[in-house]
């Protein structure tokens, strides 16, 4: 095909691209994936029995704040890395600060309690369940994000996948928080964080292949 013909064809194919089309597309993907994860929590895992009382307390909001902030950072990184040549150098620092902050809170909690409770505070009642739930719930979100990102042009597919993975892990952890009755900072700092890290790794592995163009 001659290049001139190609140019004509592309000019003929042109449709207006609204401002913010990319962010919109990502947001739609995130919302769709998040909705599926929420539905899964409600139908399969069930909301925590004491949800109404818990909402009155502070801890469920702290927990949600942690994961929502992480999701926000990761979403920013995704939208940056979806552009060719895009970088998100600040994202790891912000995310690291968030994790450190939460780990510090967990440390203070541990110091202020008797050491005989420590093992229980880390393991809680449901750690392996919690971890696998977060990773499972992150999969629909990750799929929706990667699908949206395939239309973009990430020049660092692995890194973009990592950001998408952390985002989906954070969204999954947020909705899972509605089902999970654990209420120690130590538990959240350990297992929620690990869940987000592992889904990040999953995203990086997937992105490496899926996001090539």
């Amino acid at each position: 095909m001659r290049t001139d013909d190609l140019l004509d064809a592309m000019a003929a194919d042109l449709r207006p691209t609204p401002r913010g089309a990319m962010t919109l597309r990502l947001a739609v993907g995130a919302a769709a994936g998040g909705a599926v994860a929420l539905l899964l929590v409600i139908c399969l895992l069930g909301l925590r029995g004491d949800l109404i009382e818990a909402i009155g307390g502070a801890f469920i909001w702290i927990k949600a704040g942690y994961t929502v902030l992480m999701a926000a950072v990761a979403f920013w990184a995704v939208s940056r890395l979806s552009r060719p040549g895009g970088r998100a150098d600040a994202a790891p620092w912000i995310a690291g600060t968030l994790v450190l902050g939460f780990v510090a809170a967990a440390g203070m909690e541990l110091v202020s309690t008797d050491s005989s409770h420590h093992a229980h505070m880390v393991h809680g009642n449901s750690f392996s369940y919690c971890l696998s739930a977060i990773i499972t719930l992150s999969i629909p979100v990750l799929a929706a994000m990667l699908l949206a990102m395939r239309a973009f042009a990430p020049t660092q597919p692995t890194l973009a996948g990592l950001a998408a993975g952390v985002f989906s892990g954070a969204v999954a952890a947020t909705v899972y928080g509605l089902s999970c009755a654990e209420s120690t900072a130590t538990f959240v700092a350990t297992w929620y964080t690990l869940g987000m890290v592992l889904s990040g790794a999953l995203g990086a592995a997937a992105g490496r292949w899926v996001l090539r163009w």
Partner: peptide, 28 residues
């Protein structure tokens, strides 16, 4: 590269200069 620029034109940030965007596509 032109085809990628066309189909992925939504990834161009209107507030940024155009050439780095095009060359980033080309480089990839």
């Amino acid at each position: 590269t032109l085809l990628a620029a066309h189909t992925r034109r939504a990834t161009y940030d209107r507030s940024q200069p155009l050439t780095p965007w095009v060359y980033a596509l080309g480089r990839y």
